[in-house]
């Protein structure tokens, strides 16, 4: 490279640029949690889930939204799965039967990906494990 003019300013700018774009690396190195993957506790004391796990991982919020509207707006409280199995539409009654611990199930993942659903504002799940 030939002579660089305005060296100080340019290098400062470039350093800032590099630091910014590499920030995920050093931030995670400094805070040491980069490899953290939340471990989700599921107690299978109920039946199998209303939908496949892969579907629920991606779309549970969509299902909850549909359920919400079914119950509140149309008064329908029964969910019939494709295979004909029936479930009561209820966050606390159905979902939380298996996923008993909100903190270790819902919150862990939500915190990990920076999502704050407003559901839990009203649909309060007690601190202690639900039975």
């Amino acid at each position: 490279m030939k002579k660089i003019y305005d060296k100080g300013k340019t290098l400062t700018g470039l350093i800032i640029f590099v630091v910014l774009v590499s920030s995920p690396t050093w931030y995670n190195l400094v805070f040491g949690k980069g490899n953290y993957v939340p471990d989700l506790k599921v107690e299978k004391n109920g039946k199998e889930c209303v939908k496949r796990t892969s579907y629920m991982k991606k779309n549970h919020m969509e299902l909850l939204k549909v359920w919400r509207d079914e119950v509140v707006r149309t008064g329908n409280r029964t969910y019939v799965r494709e295979d004909g199995e029936k479930f009561e539409i209820s966050l606390s009654g159905t979902c939380l039967k298996c996923h008993t611990n909100k903190q270790e199930f819902c919150d862990r993942c939500h915190r990990y990906v920076g999502v704050t659903p407003y559901c839990f504002g009203c649909h309060n799940i007690p601190r202690e494990t639900r039975k």
């Binding site: 606390s92 009654g93 009203c122 649909h123 309060n124 799940i125 639900r130």
Partner: peptide
């Protein structure tokens, strides 16, 4: 008003 709810019934939602 959630703090004014004495014993929360967890089968029914609270209100914002």
């Amino acid at each position: 008003n959630k703090r004014y709810v004495g014993n929360v019934n967890y089968d029914f939602p609270l209100r914002n």
